[in-house]
């Protein structure tokens, strides 16, 4: 439950702002000029704020859609990402947002149509390319976890019907799929789930739905005709990791039709050094930041031996179930391994 909402004066009267604010009738509403006054102010502690985050409703100015870092690519054409929201209702220990942002407040950009205008413009620039242009959501938040409040997918998914050379990928761990199950599946929308073995999810993906619930949501989406993707990223190295990942992979492929899975990506735990330092300071007691990591060229990753061992072995566990061309493994040390 959110108990304080900061609202930029410029969006205060917009319908979406008011709809969202109405969901929290007891919250204190505080009008602000620009979200940065609250979100970026000094001396904030992400971990403390995570115990009771506020909500900020604002308009995203300047560029709204950016080219993606390489590890997001899954074989399409040009790749972009956009974030209608910064921060997340879940609390994954490995989440880089803790290292990147000063505040844990949920910052929602309510000017959805400005995002869509920019997406249409970019898609137009790529219209003559053979492969569609991919637009990822869920880079700086979970795409669906806050859906009942933001109505993000409900607004964006139908809008992609009119951008045929574009694909929207919704990355999520959420089971908030009701709005997707209410509409007809669209060819140019992929719902990609980040999955971790049961014990890993329990230990490091705090507040997120269990593995079983995520697989159940995936199965429903697949049955409804939605394209789905699987993201085993980050793979968390631990004792018995092979047995844990084997169990998860068996479970996943026993409940989903591998033929109709769009892509499967595998990646090791990796963070820019500055983010790692901040996150380790926030959670000095967590084993995740003490185990098997080392720094190379400004990135903190598993050592190359550990990373190649986990990527190769988890990749091999997947190979009997799904065509190899659908598996994309992202190493921090070399070009894609599979």
């Amino acid at each position: 439950m959110v108990d304080s909402i900061y609202i930029e004066s410029a969006v205060a009267s917009q319908a979406r702002t008011q709809d969202i604010a109405r969901r929290y009738p007891k919250a204190t509403l505080i009008e602000i000029e620009r979200y940065g006054e609250v979100f970026n102010s000094h001396s904030q502690n992400f971990r403390i704020q995570k115990q009771n985050p506020s909500l900020i409703l604002a308009a995203k100015q300047n560029k709204k859609v950016m080219p993606t870092p390489a590890q997001y690519e899954t074989g399409g054409g040009a790749h972009y990402y956009f974030s209608h929201m910064l921060n997340c209702v879940y609390d994954c220990r490995y989440c880089f947002l803790q290292g990147m942002l000063r505040s844990a407040s949920y910052l929602v950009f309510v000017n959805y149509d400005d995002f869509l205008d920019e997406i249409r413009e970019i898609a137009e620039q790529h219209k003559d390319e053979a492969k569609p242009t991919w637009f990822f959501s869920g880079y700086d938040c979970d795409s669906l976890a806050y859906e009942p409040v933001t109505g993000f997918a409900e607004h964006f998914v139908p809008a992609f019907k009119d951008i045929p050379n574009a694909v929207l990928e919704l990355r999520t761990k959420s089971t908030q799929v009701r709005s997707l199950l209410k509409q007809t599946a669209q060819d140019n929308v992929v719902v990609a789930y980040s999955l971790s073995p049961k014990r890993v999810a329990q230990e490091v993906e705090l507040g997120a739905p269990s593995l079983a619930k995520r697989i159940e949501a995936l199965a429903k989406l697949q049955e409804h005709g939605w394209r789905i993707g699987l993201r085993f990223d980050p793979i968390i190295w631990h004792q018995d990791y092979l047995a844990d990942y084997a169990e998860m992979i068996e479970g996943v492929f026993s409940q989903l039709d591998a033929e109709r899975i769009d892509s499967l990506t595998i990646g090791g735990f990796r963070l820019p050094k500055g983010f790692y330092k901040t996150m380790h300071k926030l959670h000095p007691d967590h084993w995740l930041f003490s185990a098997g990591l080392s720094e190379q060229e400004g990135m903190v990753t598993y050592s190359s031996e550990i990373e190649s061992q986990v990527l190769t072995s988890v990749g091999e566990l997947c190979e009997p179930h799904i065509s190899v061309d659908k598996i994309f493994a992202y190493s921090s040390f070399e070009e894609p391994a599979l």
């Binding site: 014990r199 190295w237 003490s290």
Partner: peptide
């Protein structure tokens, strides 16, 4: 020693 020590995750040490 640390580089080789994989964490045990069933210890409830979050």
């Amino acid at each position: 020693m640390l580089a080789k020590s994989a964490p045990r995750i069933d210890r409830g040490n979050v």
